[in-house]
Design a protein around this nucleic acid. Structure first.
Lengths: 366, 366
DNA sequence: CTGAAAGCGCTTACAG
DNA sequence: CTGAAAGCGCTTACAG
């Protein structure tokens, strides 16, 4: 466990020079740098991150906050963000708050994040007002996936458009009796996805002059089991829809299972669409609206890196928390073009696209 | 962003006393503690983790290394470990190395982990010898799930027993023509799961005097898509097995899809078993050998905490890396009974159990 | 029970 | 281009 002083001694220079040489700063002669590098390698020296952080004020750590690690969507966001962050020398501090709603057991607290990270990535998490405030007061950039507002940059798909695509597809195939299976109570809070997808469905139906039967508007948790249960109820009813727009592939896979167990053939007796393009969607032949989840994670991470760099360049000295509020703009001005281009609300939208498989077909002629 | 000195001033005591009072150390009078707590609350003081770490030598961070975050098994391990760690005040530094094999792109390097964590959790990762050595030289406890050896404590199920359970079940139902779908080339390296499961299958078949047809021993990556592809080949063959033992539920779900697409009924024409009890297993009616994945993550984390505590109590002073080699034993001696009881190889085994659903039945009478 | 002081191992102006 | 020194914000013996 050699310290910087050991390296300095071995190389015959001061610790300041070692520090500069090892971090690749200019203002070090080639010869000196060479000697320092050699000495460091021989001593297997690695700078103490804790000491560097204390002295420099940056941690090289980004906090990643998620409601779940175990769900497909979140795992893929994490993977995407993590890869970009690691590639740029940043570490990932994972906060799994273990639940969706704002009244979940584990809340964000300042002792967890404060001075521990250079930035925070919030992934599709519905938060309490106090949590949002806490994040804003942290003094570091915050970037989200799926949570617009609060002055933070947000990466997301157009959820209205995604649901519209699925619905349009079914309508064009000739379906008129279409049910909707939503992901959860669309409470319209700071996480607009459920409400947006519902709106996309309803608006599209109305535009085509089709009825939206309240009894066919279902919602459940975002799981295949939930989809199975809800669809079983729906499909056992006397009058049956000929198609179901499910708000996620996991829900859709539940619908497929329900259909199978009731002896309904897909797509002959029932068409089903999902949203996501889950790993298992192809195996189930599921027609779905694919969204680039990994890419959204990567993009959010890149924007984060950009904002951190911008904040740094703006010249907060160590210990000065700076102001995260305008990190986006400042970042743009200081460190080149931002990746993706946020609109005036700070939202960067990525595209979703319909993927045709075997779970959809024209309705049977009655 | 108040510092400890602000609190000291406000409370009219020294910074040493603030430090003690806030951390709940004894040797602080009730009145003083009261005043300090009040002052700290008013100033919204939170100690700088970076400064604490530098001074104390502990980071309150545990590194969690995984080949993937996106797969069911790993996500659930992470979730379990993370919850225990967080509940005990530890943070989770996530290292997604992005691949299974020892020749994956992202290797563990000392600059990533060195002095950055108080311990490392390695989750079912096949490593290079240099990586294992690196971890051992880190000077902090290492606990694994699924990777025995190296002097580290390892949590796992008995994979031989798991595969045996599935095979026994099918044999008892009367199957004699059983195929095996393994997870990957069983290379017998430091990650014994694939080879163990294969052994459980083969041994059980032989014990019952049943043939193991090499053409029916398949393997692929651990995905449903891989299972679908492999099973499609298998089931199109002239002579068909009446049952398939798949090494994971995702593989098994792929087999189910293959059967469906070939018009084979499950379980009438083909019985299928998995291993895991994946979230989607129930929805697919899959008979499987359930393993408690979340619990393995939790257990590994608890053992880790225990070893960290033991190491601490053994009295390494700040900066002294201590010796992780005997952390297990020392932990036991110092900090009470260890959670779970490692055998002489340092392995803690948790139980798996057969879960009967609708994907298995006696073979059709020819 | 409390405080003064050393020290953790770096980075960063400031001089030169 | 290089070094001496201050400082980052805590914790921890050591005295008292």
């Amino acid at each position: 466990m050699s310290r910087i002083e050991d390296v300095a001694q071995a190389a015959g220079v001061s610790i300041a020079t070692v520090s500069r040489a090892l971090r690749g700063l200019p203002m070090v002669s080639a010869g000196t740098r060479q000697r320092v590098l050699l000495a460091a390698a021989e001593l297997q020296y690695v700078a103490s991150p804790t000491a560097s952080s204390l002295a420099s004020g940056r941690t090289m750590v980004v906090g990643v906050v998620v409601p779940y690690v175990t769900r497909w969507y979140f795992a893929h966001l994490i993977a995407g963000a993590s890869e970009v962050l690691r590639r740029h020398g940043y570490h990932v501090l994972l906060f799994d708050v273990g639940g969706e709603g704002p009244e979940r057991p584990m809340l964000l607290e300042s002792r967890a994040l404060f001075r521990r990270v250079d930035g925070v990535l919030v992934l599709s998490l519905r938060m309490q007002a106090t949590e949002r405030e806490l994040l804003s007061n942290l003094g570091v950039p915050v970037v989200t996936v799926g949570v617009p507002g609060n002055g933070w940059t947000c990466v997301r798909i157009d959820d209205v458009a995604a649901a519209t695509r699925a619905t349009e597809h079914l309508v064009r195939l000739g379906h008129r009796d279409i049910a909707f299976l939503g992901g959860e109570p669309a409470d319209g809070g700071d996480f607009p996805t459920p409400a947006d997808r519902e709106r996309g469905f309803v608006t599209t139906m109305r535009r085509h002059g089709l009825d939206v039967d309240p009894a066919w508007m279902l919602s459940t948790d975002w799981t295949a089991a939930g989809g199975l249960a809800a669809a079983s109820r729906l499909l056992r009813g006397g009058r049956r829809p000929t198609a179901v727009v499910a708000c996620s592939d996991e829900l859709a896979i539940g619908v497929l299972a329900a259909a199978r167990s009731l002896g309904l053939r897909v797509p002959q007796d029932l068409s089903v669409t999902g949203i996501d393009d889950h790993d298992m969607a192809a195996v189930h032949g599921l027609t779905t609206v694919a969204q680039p989840v990994n890419q959204q994670g990567r993009l959010a991470a890149r924007i984060m890196l950009h904002e951190v760099a911008g904040k740094e360049a703006r010249g907060s000295s160590a210990g000065d928390a700076g102001d995260a509020g305008d990190a986006v703009d400042a970042g743009d001005a200081v460190a080149g073009a931002a990746p993706g281009s946020p609109n005036q609300d700070g939202v960067v939208e990525v595209d979703s696209e319909l993927v045709l498989r075997s779970s959809t077909a024209p309705p049977a002629v009655p």
